[in-house]
Design a protein around this nucleic acid. Structure first.
Length: 801
RNA sequence: GCGGAUGUGGCGGAAUGGUAGACGCAGCAGACUCAAAAUCUGCCGGUGGCGACAUCGUGAGGGUUCGAGUCCCUCCAUCCGCACCA
């Protein structure tokens, strides 16, 4: 009789054995086929691990373990994305150095992850706050700077009033700070910027070369927001200056009835002497300036604006004089800050024209009356448009662009919603930016040999209301000499944002202890690209986009061998509380993974999180569900009492065995962990019905389950006296021919309704099936059979009139 | 407004256009037990019928098909992004 299943004993036992045997170390034998599986490294927060973490980690642990059993050299690493605000805030509040806070949090996280039995290669653990690591973060920054992709500029930034720090656009959500929820205001500050816009085209186009789930591709494309149109110069009447606008609809130029400038457009000042209602215009501009961008769009249900009197424009296609307005529905930050308005074919222009009684001229036929309803579709035929008349959208657009280019008054132009990346943070706990400002030489990069530029010890990490980083108070550190001329210079006191360290961490894992380079050429060539990267949807337009950008830059610099970092990207759904709401302390629905491991064991937690539902969808926690998985593992445990001496599979279970291997093998690849586990539950029910399990069945079953529940399967493998360790046995093979039963269930339908299910030989032919079906459903076939449908091996359907 | 997703028993969820509800949870019954728990076995969408069975049933309404949860059209609801991007 078996002992009790006791995960508290067997789980630590096997974790220690794996560690001692270096079971999951990726080797440097670059002749073996490789597999690089990656999950997003966590931010080691003070709260410790959340039950959300194990979902993706277990999913790719399954893939990694399976790949090892299939003979691959697998890299499945883990590390810490440890710079960041919460640590700094905690340090300020409790007067503990952020380094110490980080060290403690990392220790806790690591212990928690290890208690879950992940097959991470801990020899390759990295930490973004380690100077040996950020040495190379800074090195990449220097490369970016030297390539002209990092620049400092005065610009209005999103300033979080509580964190006292500048935020990237991506970090502002609904006008408040993504992290703390405090209001975000505009502040003009000199900021380091990275020219991610330089890579906008490639970041979109190369999505076609990678295997990302569709919604990730779609959101990246939308975020980058490429649009293709034209810039057109409109003459200002009676002046030599022209007004440049951007439009995606140059085909509708004949329908322009007015122009609109953004309230911040420089022409307002430039032509202030000509504008006869300047008071009104300035008042409007002031009103607009008061609103934040957020309010401006939020409150913009009703269009507002003021006509600029004394100034007008000339439509280059027909010489018509048209009025110029200002309105805050035109943004200075996009295109040229000025638009041509075509109210007949643009919803916003239409609303504006209706409100202010401006003319609406139809130039694309195909809609309803444009005086009553806007027609925006890119279908229909051009009318009222001189040389464009009769053309469709595409032809008209091309023809017009060509015409504009020939006349020298316009040209094709692409625009993006994507903005450059604000790369400065006025904070202590981040990577120092390795730049000094010299009175004579301007911004001078440190030389590579002076890296890493270590974060100095400061007395206070308190951010300041002036917007200076706490580093600014460290005059000894700030005052330095210029690497270029040797004269007096000041160090940059802003630090990098949290996204810096995570933009390249997957490269470091390939060669984490290299002191000469961020990683060796050989390691990069062998391991890249990452074969499978799983992470949260919330990182789609932040981390994922940033890291693709850095990688593409490094590729152009000849540092990495692939144009894309990740071959495949998937995303997991959130784990919600048992009430279906997001877990949070205030809702009181938080589940601590440590408690689950304590009460049920790591294998149960792993199994449950994989069984909980479709991997990509959110799922609610259920204590009863956890118990069910524990019960399943108890049944697995007791298989040892049913084990016979027979090798191979029992005759009656042979097909089931092959079917299950096929199902599990396939489902582990397609994120369908829940159905894979269901198949294994079914199989174990069959063993119980049979009252026994053969050695062959046991070996296969344990091997299939091992990636999900590694401890119990390893223990049972040992108890059964099977050779070696299960982690390095071979993944079970199936024989396609043996996945098919010798008899089939033949469905007999009459008019599409199932009337009988009969056993038939698997190789039943059409005539035989029809004959059998007729007999089985004879009572239901009332009338003439006008048609017989036969689906081989599946069903017969009699169509009766 | 635009984009993406989701909608199936009491619950979580399964179903290459071919028996809807696999697997699990909860529930019910039986076995074991002095008893309970645990475990094992069986039942488990609604309605009607003792029953074989009949009939309805995958958010709503149409359509295609011998056959639709699945494909097409029109809606509705919920969730998540983006949001005056010209």
């Amino acid at each position: 009789m078996s002992t009790t299943y006791n995960p508290k004993v067997i789980e630590p036992k096997w974790q220690k054995i794996w560690m001692d045997e270096k079971a999951f170390a990726a080797t440097t034998d670059y002749t073996k086929p490789k597999y690089y599986a990656l999950v997003e490294f966590p931010y080691p927060s003070g709260q410790g691990l959340h039950v959300g973490h194990p979902r993706p980690y277990t999913a790719l642990d399954i893939v990694a373990r399976k790949r090892r059993m299939q003979g691959y050299n697998v890299l499945y690493p883990m590390g810490w994305d440890a710079f960041g605000l919460p640590t700094e805030n905690y340090a300020i509040k409790n007067k503990i150095h952020p380094r110490v806070v980080t060290k403690n949090n990392v220790a806790r996280f690591k212990q928690q992850l290890q208690s879950l039995g992940y097959s991470f290669d801990w020899d390759r653990e990295i930490n973004t706050t380690d100077p040996e690591y950020y040495h190379w973060t800074q090195w990449i920054f220097l490369k970016l700077f030297n390539a002209g992709l990092a620049y400092k500029t005065e610009m209005p930034i999103n300033w979080c009033t509580s964190c006292k720090v500048g935020l990237a656009n991506e970090e502002v959500v609904n006008g408040v700070c993504e992290r703390c929820g405090s209001p975000v205001v505009r502040r003009v500050k000199s900021q380091w910027m990275l020219k991610i816009t330089e890579y906008a085209d490639k970041l979109i186009d190369d999505l076609d070369t990678v295997d990302y789930i569709e919604r990730v591709k779609v959101s990246q494309k939308n975020w980058i927001g490429r649009s293709e149109g034209a810039e057109v110069d409109f003459q200002i009447k009676g002046k030599k200056e022209t007004l440049r606008i951007y439009t995606t609809r140059p085909d509708t130029l004949f329908g322009v009835t007015y122009m609109v400038l953004s309230p911040e457009h420089p022409y307002l000042d430039q032509f202030k002497d000509e504008i006869t209602n300047m008071d009104e215009v300035l008042a409007y501009r002031e009103e607009a300036a008061k609103k934040s961008d957020f309010e401006r769009s939020e409150l913009a249900k009703e269009k507002t604006g003021v006509e600029i009197k004394g100034l007008s424009a000339v439509n280059p296609v027909n010489g018509q004089e048209i009025p110029i307005w200002i309105s805050d529905y035109v943004l200075m930050s996009y295109g040229t800050g000025a638009i041509m308005a075509v109210p007949a074919h643009d919803g916003r222009d239409w609303e504006f024209a209706k409100k202010f009684g401006l003319p609406i001229v139809e130039v694309v036929a195909g809609g309803e009356d444009v005086q009553k309803e806007v027609f925006e579709a890119k279908t229909g035929t051009m009318v009222n448009s001189d040389f464009l008349n009769g053309m469709d959208f595409d032809t008209a657009k091309k023809t017009m662009i060509k015409w504009l280019e020939e006349k020298g008054i316009g040209h094709a132009k692409k625009n993006f919603k994507l903005r450059d990346w604000v790369f400065s943070r006025q904070r202590y706990w981040g990577e120092p930016i390795p730049i000094v400002e010299c009175e004579k030489c301007g911004f001078v990069p440190l030389s590579e040999k002076d890296l890493p530029l270590e974060l100095p010890e400061v007395e206070s990490y308190m951010p300041t209301d002036t917007g200076e980083s706490p580093l600014a108070a460290m005059t000894d550190w700030v005052n330095t000499t210029c690497p270029c001329c040797g004269g007096p210079a000041k160090r940059e006191t802003d630090t990098m944002p949290q996204w810096a360290g995570s933009s390249w961490y997957f490269l470091r894992y390939t060669d984490p202890h290299n002191k000469e380079a961020l990683a060796s050429k050989e390691a990069l060539k062998y391991w890249l690209p990452v074969d499978w990267y799983n992470g949260g949807m919330e990182h789609t337009t932040l981390h994922l986009l940033y890291s693709r950008f850095w990688h593409k830059f490094l590729y152009d610099q000849g540092i990495v061998p692939t144009p894309e970092p990740y071959q495949k990207r998937t995303s997991h759904g959130m784990i919600l509380g048992s009430n279906g709401e997001k877990m949070s302390k205030s809702r009181g629905n938080v589940v601590n993974p440590d408690d689950v491991v304590n009460e049920f064991g790591a294998d149960t937690l792993r199994t449950y999180e994989m069984f909980i539902g479709a991997f990509e969808l959110a799922a609610s926690w259920s204590e009863d569900g956890v118990k069910g998985c524990r019960r399943f593992l108890e049944r697995v445990w007791k298989l040892q009492d049913m084990l016979t001496e027979e090798e191979g599979y029992s005759k009656n279970l042979e097909v089931r065995m092959h079917q299950t291997i096929k199902k599990v093998t396939g489902d582990f690849e397609t994120l369908k962990y829940n159905t894979a586990i269901a198949a294994m539950m079914s199989l174990i029910n069959d063993f119980y019905k049979a009252g026994k399990v053969t050695k062959g069945e046991m070996k296969t079953f344990l091997s299939l389950l091992n990636p999900v529940a590694p401890h119990i399967t390893e223990e049972l493998w040992q108890i059964a006296g099977f050779e070696g360790r299960i982690y390095n046995t071979q993944w079970p093979a199936f024989d396609e021919a043996k996945t098919v039963d010798s008899t089939i269930k033949l469905v007999v339908q009459v008019n599409g309704k199932t009337r009988a299910v009969i056993d038939a030989p698997a190789d039943v032919d059409k005539d035989m099936a029809i004959a059998m079906g007729r007999e089985a459903a004879a009572a239901k076939i009332k009338g003439d059979v006008i048609k017989e449908i036969y689906v081989p091996g599946k069903l017969v359907n009699f169509v009766v009139k």
